[in-house]
Simulated scan of single mutants.
Amino acid sequence: MSRPTNLVNSWNEWDPLREIVVGVADNACFEPTEPGHRPQLRTPDGGSAPFPTGPKPAEMIERANEQLDGLVRLLESQGVTVHRPVAPDLASPLRTPDFQVENQYCVVCPRDVMITLGNEIIEATMSRRARYFEYQAYRKLVYSYWNNDPGMVWTVAPKPSMADSMYRQEFWEWPLEERHRRMHSSEFCVTQDEVVFDAADISRFGRDIVVQESMTTNRSGIHWLKRHLEPRGFRVHPVHFPLDFFPSHIDCTFVPLRPGLVLTNPERPLREGEEQLFLRNGWELVDVPQPTSTNDEMPKYCQSSKWLSMNVLSISPTKVVCEEREKPLQDLLDKLGFEVFPVPFRDVFEYGGSLHCATWDVNREGTAEDYFPVNDYRPLAEGPRILG
Rank of each mutant, 00 (worst) to 15 (best):
T5Q: 15
N9Y: 00
N9S: 07
N9Q: 02
N9L: 00
S10G: 02
D15K: 03
P16C: 04
V21D: 09
N27Q: 14
H37E: 10
P39H: 01
L41G: 02
F51A: 02
T53Y: 00
T53C: 05
T53E: 11
G54E: 03
K56H: 00
K56V: 08
E62S: 13
A64N: 01
N65L: 09
E66Q: 13
V72P: 00
E76F: 06
T81R: 11
P85M: 12
V86Q: 14
A91K: 03
T96W: 08
P97E: 11
N103I: 08
Y105P: 04
V107S: 11
L117V: 13
E123Y: 08
E123I: 13
A124P: 02
A130I: 08
A130Y: 15
Y138K: 08
R139L: 12
S144A: 13
N147E: 15
P150M: 09
P150R: 11
M152H: 02
A157S: 10
M162F: 14
M166H: 12
W172F: 10
W172Y: 05
E173W: 09
L176Y: 08
E177G: 00
E178N: 05
R182V: 06
R182C: 10
F188K: 03
T191C: 00
T191M: 00
Q192H: 08
A200R: 05
R207W: 00
L229Y: 07
R232G: 07
R235S: 07
R235W: 05
V236Q: 07
F241K: 05
P242L: 00
H249M: 07
C252N: 13
V255I: 12
P256H: 01
P256Y: 03
G260S: 04
G260Q: 03
L270I: 02
G273E: 03
E274I: 09
Q276N: 14
L277F: 07
G282C: 08
E284M: 09
E284A: 10
D287R: 13
S293D: 10
N295S: 09
Q303L: 06
V312R: 02
S314A: 15
S316P: 09
E323F: 03
E326W: 04
G337L: 04
D347F: 01
D347V: 01
E350P: 01
G366F: 07
D370P: 03
D370S: 05
F372G: 06
P373V: 02
N375H: 13
Y377A: 15
Y377C: 11
R378Q: 15
E382F: 05
G383P: 09
R385V: 15
I386N: 07
G388F: 11
